Amino acid sequence: MPSWVIVGATRGIGFEYVNQLSSDSQNEVFALIRSQKTAGPLNELAVSRKNIRVIETNIANPAKLKETAEQIGNITGGKLDVLVYNAFFHGDSGELTPSAFTGREEELEPHFFEPLKVNALHVIHTVNALLPLIKQGVEKKIIYISSASGDLEVTRIIELPAVIGYSVSKAAGTMIMTKYASELKEDGIVTLSISPGWVDTDASKAALTSPEAFTAMVSTLRKLDPNVKGMISPKESVESMLSVIKSLDKNNSGKFLSHKGNLDWF
């Protein structure tokens, strides 16, 4: 039975990963969450599908993650096939450009470092805790849900000077995956950073406070892809990503790809 861990599974893309994977009774799905307070729909799904296990953990705490890994290993026989790290933090002051922090330096440090913790540092904590299980798995895949806003060329073309902390942290997370790909090659482990596309989630909607903001975003993204019309559904995004993950092997380990398996980000 293939085993999957989805980190950040209560809603949006993470929830849809759990939903689609658990629809196949052959998959064993571990949904790692920060708090039960927001896990109502996930727990409801777990009641109807016995191959889902919801586990509350703390990705900022290596000791807690070790306990979580032991809990998973006790169920799977010490193995894990695929880890999907979907947890993220967007951060505040997203509209400020680098120079706009002049005179607002007290805001810069949390804006820069808080996303970096969740989107990069805690990635290492999570992978390291689960790595002994992954080494014993069959698929041996580590997947990081990144963002096109962390890509240098995308940022250059669409001319996006804001959301510094989020973009920098996603670029850092992507680099970490490439580092793991190099380190773990001899263990047969492959890694991938993947952008889910522009997905219709609560977080995406929160960033678009008006119809004018949506129109402005479409116009910005069309600098890169003239065919952009709007957001795609979590269902479409995850279906596409799972197809890319299925084809992941040593030849593309460590790469950063779109949900389409190429550099067509939207």
Rank of each mutant, 00 (worst) to 15 (best):
S93A: 12
G94Y: 08
E95P: 00
E95M: 14
L96D: 10
S99N: 11
S99R: 02
A100L: 05
F101T: 05
F101D: 09
G103C: 10
E105D: 14
E106W: 01
E106Y: 02
E107D: 15
P110R: 06
H111Y: 04
L116D: 06
L116P: 04
L116K: 07
L116N: 14
K117I: 04
V118R: 01
V118A: 15
V118Q: 15
N119F: 00
A120C: 15
A120S: 14
L121N: 08
H122L: 07
H122E: 11
H122Y: 15
H125E: 03
T126P: 05
N128M: 10
L131N: 06
P132G: 09
P132C: 10
P132V: 02
L133K: 00
K135A: 12
K135F: 06
V138A: 04
K141R: 13
I142V: 10
I142D: 02
I142Q: 00
Y144E: 13
I145H: 01
S147Y: 00
S147F: 03
A148M: 15
S149E: 07
S149C: 05
L152S: 15
E153K: 11
V154Y: 05
T155W: 00
T155Y: 03
P161T: 05
A162D: 09
A162H: 12
I164H: 08
S167R: 14
S167G: 08
S169D: 11
S169G: 10
S169T: 03
K170T: 01
A171S: 12
A171N: 06
G173K: 03
T174C: 14
M175I: 06
K179D: 04
Y180V: 01
A181T: 06
S182K: 13
S182P: 03
E183S: 11
E186P: 02
E186Y: 12
D187F: 11
D187L: 04
I189R: 00
T191L: 04
T191A: 05
L192A: 00
L192D: 05
I194Y: 08
V199Y: 03
V199P: 03
V199R: 01
D200S: 09
D202E: 13
L208F: 07
S210D: 12
A213Y: 09
T215L: 06
A216E: 07
M217H: 08
M217E: 13
V218R: 15
S219T: 15
T220E: 02
R222Y: 03
D225G: 05
P226F: 08
N227E: 13
